[in-house]
Design a protein around this nucleic acid. Structure first.
Length: 302
DNA sequence: GACATAATAT
DNA sequence: CATATTATGT
């Protein structure tokens, strides 16, 4: 670490003058990454105006550019703060990888309808809002729920559903952190999933640990049918990855080079809709379910 | 009512 | 933060 790294602000628009050696270094980081234009237009509405009007849906100021920006800034600030701590590790282009590269997964609480749908070629049908006739009038007087208020969504939070994608990120983060640093707070921060709370992560983490332990005990792999979610998860073979820093918080070893590639199919990826329900028992049992049928599960991984 | 999973309490 | 317990949904 002999060289001093000058870490400028989260400067994005690099001037045209520094097309020198500096650029070469970060070139490797940019390689394979989606261009800013290619990135998901988070700041834009998920529902096209035409569709919205067709279904009499109010556009809703949900994800305004400022919101997105603010979220990114928050994350950036957090990470930057942590970055300060690990001055020994000079990750110069961390900024590049975090703020812009990290696609902020947005957990949607809007999906109360529970429309489970897989995105496929040609299936432009995203999560459409509830177009129920009954819900229509509710818009008039919303004393209990006020979607317009950004605070409301934080107050009453629907049950989080750990979709495979979410779990994937979770596992990735845990794996790259190492069990030592894989604490709820850090995990949550590194996952960078909007709307995800520490409690959510903690709860899931415990389940995950339980699963690992369970499997560890049963020497050979015997993924119980119940662990469908975890079954396909590439577990982090080993845990010992300490950033040496003990004692503290906020210092970890590496920025998690998540292999996120942009899909070249549908023209960009969308913030993963997470909330919803599976709405499906496994079979048709009127009255009683099979006692031994312990496994009803959903999920499928990408 | 059993079972699974997320939320909440300790 | 880890674990235990409770709540909720299928």
């Amino acid at each position: 670490m002999g060289e001093e790294v000058k870490m400028t602000e989260c400067e994005i628009n690099d001037g045209e003058d520094n097309i020198n050696g500096d650029d070469e270094r970060i070139a490797v980081w940019e390689m394979g990454l989606p261009t800013p234009d290619d990135l998901t237009p988070l700041s834009q509405l998920l529902i096209p105006p035409e569709l919205a009007s067709a279904f009499s849906i109010c556009p809703e100021p949900h994800r305004t550019p400022l919101d997105v920006n603010r979220a990114s800034q928050t994350t950036l600030s957090n990470i930057r703060g942590q970055l300060n701590v690990l001055s020994s590790n000079n990750f110069k282009s961390f900024n590049e990888t975090t703020g812009q590269t990290h696609d902020p997964i947005v957990v949607d609480l809007d999906n109360k309808t529970g429309a489970v749908e897989r995105d496929g070629p040609g299936s432009e049908a995203r999560k459409l809002r509830r177009v129920d006739s009954e819900e229509a009038d509710s818009r008039t007087e919303n004393s209990a729920e006020d979607p317009s208020s950004e605070a409301a969504r934080a107050l009453k939070r629907p049950r989080l559903v750990w979709t495979p994608q979410l779990h994937k990120r979770f596992v990735d983060v845990v794996g790259h952190l190492g069990i030592k640093n894989a604490v709820p707070k850090t995990i949550m921060q590194l996952m960078n999933v909007e709307g995800l709370t520490r409690e959510n992560v903690a709860s899931h983490l415990q389940k995950y640990r339980l699963y690992l332990k369970r499997m560890q005990g049963l020497s050979s792999d015997g993924p119980s049918a119940s662990d469908q979610l975890f079954a396909s998860t590439p577990l982090p073979q080993s845990l010992p990855e300490s950033s040496g820093g003990g004692g503290g918080n906020g210092n970890f070893g590496m920025p998690i080079p998540m292999p996120y590639h942009h899909t070249a199919t549908a023209g960009g990826m969308m913030p993963m809709p997470v909330y919803g329900h599976m709405g499906m028992q496994m079979g048709n049992n009127n009255g009683h379910n099979n006692s031994s049928s312990g496994n009803h599960q959903h999920h499928q991984i990408d």
